[in-house]
Computed example of a mutant assay.
Amino acid sequence: MKNTVTTLQAMKTKGEKISMLTCYDYTTACLMEEAGINAILIGDSLGMTMMGYSDTLPVTVDDIIHHCASVSRGLKDTFLVADMPFMSYQTSVEDAVRNAGRLIKEGHAQAVKLEGGATVVEQIKAITKADIPVVAHIGLTPQSINAFGGFKVQGKNVERAIQILEDAKAVEAAGAFMVTLECVPEELATLISKELTIPTIGIGAGNGCDGQVLVYQDMLGMFSGFKPKFVKHFANIGEDMKNAFKAYDAEVKSQAFPAAEHNFAIDSEVMAEVEKHINTTEFTVNLDSDKVLA
């Protein structure tokens, strides 16, 4: 069944959990589609996972569109959400609507996600007024890493916990159809999930959320030196990939690959004529036309 805003809302109502993963390319999107993942996020995490930046801040709208369009070609039933990167919506409501529209029109996303609570309700209202579904993102918001002083759990004191709760209610009232809770204590995230009528998607926020999202390279163990507390390795694909690369390197150098079964044959008489031609013809090269002249 095709996942839509309506079906995801129905899953919360029925108490069914929603699965979401990040994705950045066509091949991986096809695999996630076949696996039955409910939703895919083209996260600005691609800045770190695909582009090698130390954080998400350098990512542009064009970057998101490029990866989102690629992923969309591999999907049929999976719901596709595109992140709005840093400074694509903070500058003005007009910029927010324009950039959200580009992600839908050029990236072929079905919804956009933006970080912030009460501070971005006007953007959420305007984007939803343009008939673009919005996923809000509160708690730890990576685009605010400089303000937070690093990647830290949010909502551990009374003041901050109440603020996150109020942010959740504010984005729901503004029209968001879903909200991501990142690095929020489990008890607080569970309370928020019960208070809201819209689905909550947790990342480091416990099992009381209506669904979960992870960066797919994290859950596949593709980063050997980095494993956040909230990440579980469902496979060790990173190690498998390294072993495969090493095996390829060794076989190329030993000439074990390519073997006979990987090669194409040519009739010996044809080769004899080619060799005869080489031995009896003088070749010159016309540098102006890049053509070989006999």
Rank of each mutant, 00 (worst) to 15 (best):
P142N: 07
A189K: 04
F151M: 07
V153T: 11
I138D: 06
P185N: 09
I145C: 04
T141I: 09
V158P: 03
E187I: 08
A174E: 07
I138N: 15
V153Q: 13
V153P: 12
C183D: 06
A168W: 13
D131S: 11
F148N: 12
I162D: 08
C183R: 12
V134D: 02
K129F: 12
K156D: 05
K194D: 13
G150N: 01
Q154N: 05
A174G: 05
T141P: 15
R160K: 13
E186R: 14
E166D: 10
A189G: 11
L165K: 14
F151P: 02
T190A: 11
P133V: 08
I138S: 10
E159F: 08
L191E: 14
A170P: 05
F148E: 05
N157W: 13
N157M: 03
Q154S: 02
G139S: 10
L165V: 05
V179K: 13
V184T: 00
P142A: 02
I138K: 13
V135L: 15
V158D: 04
L191Y: 14
G149F: 08
M178N: 10
G155T: 02
Q143S: 05
N146T: 09
S144V: 02
N146H: 15
S144A: 12
V134C: 10
A173C: 06
E182D: 01
D167N: 04
G150T: 10
M178G: 03
L188W: 11
N146F: 09
G175Y: 15
A161V: 02
N157I: 09
I164C: 11
I132W: 03
T128I: 00
P185M: 14
K156P: 00
V179T: 07
I127D: 03
I192H: 08
R160S: 04
A174P: 02
L181Y: 09
P133C: 10
L140I: 00
G155P: 00
V135D: 08
I138Q: 13
D167A: 08
T141A: 12
A189I: 07
E166P: 06
F177D: 03
E195M: 12
M178R: 03
Q163I: 07
E166R: 15
P185S: 14
E182W: 12
R160I: 00
A136Y: 11
D131R: 13
A173R: 09
T190S: 07
I192M: 10
V179F: 05
G139T: 02
T128C: 09
K194T: 08
I164W: 10
L165T: 00
E159V: 00
I164S: 11
I164Y: 15
T128P: 02
H137L: 05
F151D: 15
M178S: 08
L188Q: 11
G149M: 07
L181I: 00
A189P: 01
V153K: 11
